[in-house]
Design a protein around this nucleic acid. Structure first.
Length: 460
RNA sequence: GGCCACGUGGCGGAGUGGUUACGCGCCGGUCUGCAAAACCGUUUACUCGGGUUCGAGUCCCGACGUGGCCUCCA
């Protein structure tokens, strides 16, 4: 069976045919490292990790190249640096912010069971490529310098009309309407009100680099051109898959396409544009003002990363998802069960009943339903399938031990109470045995009696 | 205002014309000193109004509701 993926540009599911089966190439927009990543940021990380794993399964581990960038030059970073480290020179403070945040991001996504991408380029290490693209755009008449800025003109792009995509095609907008509907307060140096920034001057003390397009003042890149440059450097002018959150379709991805296609005179940048849907928290939009801003870091204090991962994959990646505590509890329960029955068995090959839904535009909910089916029929295939999806990274004992550790329960004390209870039961002193059971329950310990004896675990 | 998603049983969530989704919960049973856990079994649905069709949750039109983008928020 073949892989089919939904492409935002053509607005249909299409059979996936890689440009080069020896090197399948995927780019996903990564974080801007200025603060803890929130649970919404985790969605593309997890979704495209599943796709990465699936592609490796299909084409071989050595034949998939996954690039996810780190944006480490940005206004928000500058603001954060100035606020958090007022005593330091700005550039030093910025380095602290990006290093700390980058480290935290890696810790978070590792815990979510996401494989590291093949390459994680940093924007600040690709300024040369950005300047190159900008120079090409200026030379081609698609961009111009004005007051130390370089601006891209979508109108020039659509006027060229020769082997280029139409600006607006990806986000399904007409440039004319955008011109008409644009805000009034357009910067005076812009020729057209839809022109966007490729390069801008740096304020004193901010990170800065020599400017392109004959500008003498030092400057820094705009956001959109960073991704064009990093994708070009690591994947070439034309590659297979470009992914990100649906909110990035416009303007970010629309502008990326414009920059890359105009710089290299191409009709396409990526053959498949994939976008994950939005996430709400307890039926509300996540925002700092509502106070429901949930970071991955905070959630990881209460839940194993795989619980967050499963919770995310229970919904199809293009559908909206409502992130709730109830749903997390359910996911935790499911994983407890899978760990119990499958973590320590020899994994078999991933089952077709699991792989086939994945081949149909990453239908993870249907794949998960198939896992429930395997649970009763073939635990070897269950184990293999779970591993394909990035689960079962530890043993059953480690899984249980982690819960125990997080709860702070004293295992020795529990064992002592259980043997007391066993003795009480043996002499039919049920009042005493029930008292001990209640005591353990109050400690957060759940008892399980069976013919082989009594076991226990930390109740969640 | 423009563009675009989504609306399935108590809850989550698949299903692009025709047989049980699946999971959690509830309920019943087995087990148990009683429970819990485990195992077995069972129940409930397709926002509303039209239309197409032998047949629609599934296609078309409309309404209502929710959400997203149109400001460098995934």
């Amino acid at each position: 069976m073949e892989l089919r993926l939904y492409d935002t540009l053509s607005r249909e599911k299409r059979t996936f045919v890689p440009l080069d089966a020896k090197e399948v190439r995927m780019y996903v927009c990564g974080p801007t490292v200025y603060d803890f990543a929130h649970i919404g940021n985790a969605r593309p990380v997890i979704v495209f990790d599943v796709l990465f794993r699936l592609l490796r399964h299909l084409y071989g581990e050595a034949h998939v190249k996954y690039v996810r960038n780190i944006t480490d030059v940005d206004d928000k970073i500058n603001d954060r640096a100035a606020r958090d480290f007022p005593g330091l020179p700005l550039n030093e403070a910025i380095r602290k912010v990006t290093e700390q945040t980058g480290r935290q991001f890696h810790a978070d996504v590792d815990a979510l069971g996401a494989l590291r991408p093949s390459v994680e380029p940093r924007a600040t290490e690709h300024i040369g490529e950005m300047r190159e693209i900008i120079e090409r755009l200026v030379a081609g008449g698609f961009a111009y310098a004005a007051e130390d800025h370089v601006l891209f003109s979508p109108q020039a792009m659509n006027a060229a009309n020769s082997g280029l995509p139409r600006y607006g095609a990806l986000s399904n907008r007409s440039l004319d309407e955008m011109v008409a509907g644009a805000r009034v307060d357009v910067a005076p140096y812009k020729k057209g009100n839809t022109d966007f920034v490729l390069w801008k001057p740096s304020k004193p003390g901010e990170p800065s680099w020599p400017s392109p397009a004959g500008i003498t003042a030092q400057g820094r890149p705009g956001w959109h051109v960073e991704c064009s440059a990093m994708a070009w450097k690591h994947l070439g002018e034309h590659f297979d898959i470009h992914g990100g959150g649906i909110d990035l379709v416009f303007p970010h991805h629309e502008n990326e396409v414009a920059q890359t296609c105009c710089a290299f005179h191409r009709e396409r940048m990526a053959n498949y544009w994939m976008h994950n849907g939005f996430l709400q928290v307890e039926s509300e939009k996540m925002s700092k003002s509502l106070g429901n801003f949930v970071t991955i870091h905070e959630l990881l204090a209460d839940w194993p990363g795989e619980v967050l991962r499963l919770n995310m994959l229970k919904t199809h990646y293009r559908s909206p998802i409502d992130w709730t505590m109830k749903s997390l509890e359910e996911s935790a329960k499911t994983l407890d069960d899978w760990y119990r029955v499958a973590a320590d068995v020899v994994p078999g090959k991933p089952a077709p009943s699991v792989v086939e839904p994945l081949l149909d535009d990453l239908n993870t909910p249907l794949a998960i339903a198939a896992l429930h089916g395997l649970r009763g029929s073939d635990v070897g295939a269950l184990a293999g399938s779970l591993r394909l999806l990035g689960f079962l990274s530890e043993s059953a004992a480690q899984w249980e031990g982690r819960k125990q550790q997080a709860s702070g329960v004293d295992a020795k004390e529990v064992e002592r109470l259980i043997s007391e209870r066993t003795a009480a039961r043996a002499r039919k002193d049920f009042a005493e045995s029930d008292r001990i059971r209640d005591l353990l329950a109050a400690m957060g310990v759940a008892i399980k009696d069976s013919k082989e004896g009594t076991t226990w675990e930390v109740a969640r």
